[in-house]
């Protein structure tokens, strides 16, 4: 899939929803719970379940990022699956919040 900054995606197998904060240039394969993410306004195929080993959960307001590609996702709805990029689990981005400046 090709990611756009600001585009919103949902998991096909749990409640997870993410917004793309930074997008890599090329095509990527993004999954949650082992299944590809789908556009937030579409309906998942019924009957899918989280793959074994693809649990771990997503947390509201947290960022998940891959420094190598520059991908960064913001979790806007928490779920029970784990996010993965090209089959590798996406780590939680260490939080270094900026002081509010306005």
């Amino acid at each position: 899939m090709q990611l756009r900054i600001g585009s919103r995606w949902r998991s096909a197998v749990d409640d997870t929803q993410v917004v793309v904060v930074r997008a890599p240039a090329g095509e990527v394969s993004l999954t949650c719970g082992g299944h590809p993410l789908i556009p937030a306004d579409s309906q998942p195929t019924p009957g899918l379940t989280i793959d074994e080993g693809a649990t771990g959960g997503t947390a509201l307001g947290k960022r998940y990022a891959d420094p190598a590609t520059g991908l960064e996702l913001l979790c806007v709805k928490a779920g029970t699956g784990a996010l993965a990029l090209d089959g590798v689990e996406l780590p939680l981005k260490s939080a270094k919040p900026l002081p509010a400046s306005d």
Binding site: I5, G6, V19, L60, G61, L74, V76, L98, A100
Partner: peptide
């Protein structure tokens, strides 16, 4: 633009922190 303001917020503010 929407993208200007959205990226500013997403890049500098933690949701519900």
């Amino acid at each position: 633009g929407h993208d200007n303001l959205s990226s500013y917020i997403l890049g500098s503010v933690e949701l519900m922190a």
